[in-house]
């Protein structure tokens, strides 16, 4: 019998055949707890399909300056810091009340480094997340090779593994086979953050990832404008936008306007 979390559909519910989904990344606790909750509600209201909530961490190996600085700001803006437990509680509050005009909150994935999960305890992380209605986890420093202890305790939660431009066919097969919900295709080597142009071979990369999985393939890292999002939406099942959203996270009006433009671009690209 699945536990309480079964009430929450998996991350796959955020994907619709025939059209691309917008996956929006928000930093938990940034600029403070209340305003990060408001940002989640803004994104739900404008119709983003999946929300990733970042867990503030002091050593964000895979993140660029915008997300790293937001993490540091979230940590210091909240008394006692803001970590994984606080982020899970934030998601629970959002799921319980996604905002006045929102029928159902979109599925939420936590994006966290592995050590906060270890520190909280893997079984406890899974249990609290299921209770909060978290749909899945994206853990940039947990490749499928090292994920066995987590997968053993995380039933009911989708774990999304990352595919990279450097991944070999063998590794793509492993990523595709062990991922649940969707596969996160990293567009470029390097860290998260906006870039002036998309890599020219991105379409081929997505095709390679697609060949390795039956799951939706979402592309992230370096997508920062509605035009770039639309371009990616033509060949990917999902478009992840992070830094460009986090930069507007403190301003609900700007955030709503930007997210609405992104959603329109992604949803009408094909």
């Amino acid at each position: 019998m699945p536990d309480a979390g079964a009430a929450c559909a998996g991350l796959g519910a955020g994907f619709t055949p025939g059209r691309a989904s917008l996956v929006a990344y928000v930093m938990g606790g940034y600029p403070d707890r209340v305003r990060s909750l408001e940002a989640l509600r803004v994104l739900a209201a404008v119709g983003v399909d999946v929300i990733e909530v970042g867990v503030p961490y002091a050593d964000p190996l895979a993140d660029g300056p915008v997300i790293a600085e937001a993490a540091a700001a979230a940590h210091s803006a909240n008394e006692g810091g803001f970590g994984l437990a606080e982020t899970i509680a934030l998601v629970a509050e959002f799921r319980a009340d996604p905002g006045p005009d929102v029928a159902a909150a979109p599925p939420v994935a936590l994006m966290t480094y592995f050590n906060p999960m270890l520190k909280l305890g893997l079984p406890r992380t899974a249990q609290l997340s299921r209770e909060a209605g978290v749909a899945g986890f994206i853990v940039p420093d947990l490749p499928p090779d090292s994920a066995r202890p987590w997968l053993a305790v995380s039933a009911g939660l989708d774990t999304v593994f990352l595919a990279a431009p450097t991944s070999t066919p063998e590794r793509l097969a492993k990523v595709g086979e062990r991922s649940r919900g969707f596969v996160y295709c990293v567009s470029t080597t390097g860290v998260t953050g906006e870039r002036s142009g998309l890599p020219p071979a991105l379409g081929q990369l997505v095709a390679r990832v697609r060949a390795a999985t039956t799951l939706p393939v979402a592309v992230g890292f370096g997508v920062g404008t509605p035009a770039q999002a639309a371009e990616v939406a033509r060949f990917a099942d999902g478009v992840v936008v992070g830094s460009a959203i986090v930069r507007r996270q403190a301003d609900p009006v700007a955030l709503a306007e930007f997210a609405r433009a992104l959603a329109a671009a992604v949803h009408t690209a094909r």
Binding site: D141, P143, D145, S146, A164, T166, T168, R171, T189
Partner: peptide, 22 residues
């Protein structure tokens, strides 16, 4: 074979560098 000394060690890095480590 997975790089563990007892329970310590292993490989906890972004996918991008996994092929390079292999």
């Amino acid at each position: 074979s997975e790089g563990f000394f007892g329970e310590y060690g292993g490989t906890f890095v972004p996918e991008t560098v996994m092929p390079a480590l292999e």
